[in-house]
């Protein structure tokens, strides 16, 4: 088994937490995804949703100490909005799951395996 982080990037267009229907729809999509993960012989080791990128602070460490700026590290139209950590047999299974993961863009990154983990 290998572990992957699914980094979910979406347009930061104020998903309104007060909109009950939108919240329910979003939750249902993620429940469907979680069911598909189990059905594929994979499992979810962790997941979180993030507050919008407008709430981010970035610390850049250079030679003259650290500089704090307002906003995300990379200011792009699509921002990191949440992640899953998935355990799957191989990349083919991981990519199949990423295709049904509820987000506009998903970067699939293998998690570095340390020799002592084995």
């Amino acid at each position: 088994m290998a572990r992957y982080m699914f980094l979910m990037y979406d347009v930061d267009d104020g998903f309104d937490p007060a909109d009950e229907q939108a919240v329910l729809d979003e939750m249902r999509l993620h429940e469907e995804f979680m069911a598909a993960v189990s059905a594929a012989g994979a499992s979810i080791l962790g997941s979180e949703a993030l507050e919008p990128s407008s709430t981010a602070s970035t610390v850049r460490r250079g030679g003259d100490g650290a500089l704090v700026t307002d906003g995300p590290f990379a200011d792009t139209k699509e921002a990191l909005g949440g992640f899953y950590v998935i355990e799957a047999p191989d990349l083919d299974v991981a990519l199949r799951l990423a295709k049904i993961c509820p987000a506009g863009n998903i970067e699939v990154r293998p998690i570095m395996e340390m020799p002592d983990d084995a």
Binding site: A2, P89, D90, L91, D92
Partner: peptide, 9 residues
């Protein structure tokens, strides 16, 4: 690293 399997699909 990404565990691309060595197999026939």
């Amino acid at each position: 690293a990404a565990r691309i399997p060595f197999r026939v699909p």
